[in-house]
């Protein structure tokens, strides 16, 4: 347990898909003074089960407490701390930029390079859709900024353990 440094940790929490469950999870983070960086919620393949991805800044000890506290919520079915397991993380953003006809060629080039998609076009503006890691989205935002960003919406990170690995239950023992 000698991991003094704080860093971003991602938890995947499977919960009952019932009214108020997100409230319970969020309330836990609030009242234990854990600071959420990003939170994304959605359905899973299983009826009645929702998938929450929570990103927070924490050291190993706090992470373990978060996990243990999450398990105490009756509606929590499973918790995975993805810090030490191979996983895939994606973020989706919609970015609206000012762009007259003179800029269109450049826009198309950016779209190509970033594998983004232009999903809406109007005479003065475009909307880019991009899926990827946070870094990738951040750099697209940087590149688009000179054009004049007029709107930005991000989903927050969504994560999943890679198919080849199993998250290790980390509540056993306290070495």
């Amino acid at each position: 347990m000698t991991e003094p440094s704080q860093h971003s940790r991602t938890f995947v929490v499977l919960v009952d898909d019932k009214p108020g469950v997100l409230d319970r999870v969020a309330s836990l983070f609030r009242r234990r003074a854990y600071n959420i960086e990003s939170l994304a919620v959605g359905r899973t393949d299983k009826p009645g089960v929702s998938h929450i991805t929570v990103v927070m800044n924490a050291d190993a000890r706090t992470a373990r407490l978060v996990e243990a506290n999450l398990y105490k919520l009756v509606n929590v079915l499973d918790v995975q701390d993805l810090s030490n397991v191979p996983s895939v993380t994606r973020d989706l953003a919609l970015i609206k930029v000012q762009a007259g006809h003179d800029k269109r060629a450049e826009d198309l080039q950016i779209e190509e390079v970033f594998r983004a998609r232009i999903v809406d076009v109007s005479p003065n503006a475009l909307i880019f859709e991009i899926t990827g890691t946070e870094d990738k989205i951040d750099s697209l935002v940087d590149v688009l900024r000179p054009f004049g960003i007029v709107g930005l919406a991000r989903t927050g990170r969504v994560s999943m353990v890679r198919a080849t690995s199993e998250a290790v239950p980390s509540l056993e023992g306290v070495g």
Partner: peptide
């Protein structure tokens, strides 16, 4: 009995939950 009490205030050397 409560794993969330382990290492909450005081770091311990062995926990028997």
């Amino acid at each position: 009995i409560d794993p969330s009490e382990i290492n909450k205030i005081i770091q311990v050397d062995v926990a028997l939950v």
